[in-house]
Design a protein around this nucleic acid. Sequence first.
DNA 1: GTCTATAAGGAGATAGAC
DNA 2: GTCTATCTCCTTATAGAC
Lengths: 188, 188
Amino acid sequence: MSMKESVRDRILQVSERLFYKQGYNLTGINQIIAEAGIAKGSLYNHFKSKEELLMSYLESIEKEWFSSLNAFLEQQKKPEDKLLGLFDFRMKAQMNSGFLGCRFVKVSVEVPKDSSEVLSFIAGHKKKYAGIIDNILSEMDLPVFLQKEDFSMMVLLMIEGASVLGISANSSLQLERSKQIISGLLKK
Amino acid sequence: MSMKESVRDRILQVSERLFYKQGYNLTGINQIIAEAGIAKGSLYNHFKSKEELLMSYLESIEKEWFSSLNAFLEQQKKPEDKLLGLFDFRMKAQMNSGFLGCRFVKVSVEVPKDSSEVLSFIAGHKKKYAGIIDNILSEMDLPVFLQKEDFSMMVLLMIEGASVLGISANSSLQLERSKQIISGLLKK
DNA sequence: GTCTATAAGGAGATAGAC
DNA sequence: GTCTATCTCCTTATAGAC
């Protein structure tokens, strides 16, 4: 209860780095405990299985992701800038990670289809993200040729498409172009 | 040279099914040889490593994918129908696979970043796909508020975004909505 | 060219000492 | 609650008989 750099926190910290960089399936328990400097028994004291660790990983990075995104968006005053800031935020993430794409999407691709708890968590995360886009658009004037719901969906899908294509292309150009396209539409 | 259901073909057939359904990393050599009904030595006679098998897998599914896509598109006369057919084609694939997303994207997410041969093959595949969209749009009247290159990019990114979000959502609704949105834009 | 047998190592998970 | 030691199974890959 007193010192907070607990064993559990160290396991999660190491997992956050390795699950993203190497992928969940290519990251073994043995590597996690080695880099965290703890014993195998300690890991299984805090997490009863690797999949339970994965769920804790997802919860942890979601908290961090939304708080970091919200902090970034609050720097923008106008809703137009917030909307375009969504692209900047993802571009920054792409460049910092070496174009690894979205952490959540990555897990959704890696796990088997019967990991329903994992998959529905990720689906829920994307729904929350879509809600953020919705909220930004609610405060804006939109192009006359698009419904708000359609424009919101378009932004979401372009960001996710650009993010995932950036993995194989090793590039954030797709996100940059998306930003320009959406920005151009706003002026019509 | 005579009978074509060779050992090599059987290995590739089984790999095509398992690499997609289970993922590349979760599919072991042992399972492949078991389901192909061949011995381990035979596999390593035809492919010198699992990664070489992966490259052959990618080349094989790309040939099949483009020929199947082109056959589908040729059923459509008008370029507008071809464009919307791109969405139908992906929706059909999503439903047939149980919402597993794009085979190529899946591999790009699974492999380490230093698998440059694999990643650049996939980037090349997506570039060819983008070229197909370009060609369709070249024969069409486009919305006045969008450059051809931008509209093409938008279509590509929405398809890829919808496809990858469909994995966690277990749905092809994202593709259906994308189709409707693009279809709506064409009437403006 | 296909086979069996084996190597060498890593996976996830558990038992039990302290 | 953390540790060491171990279990069972599976991984990719190779050697060598046929």
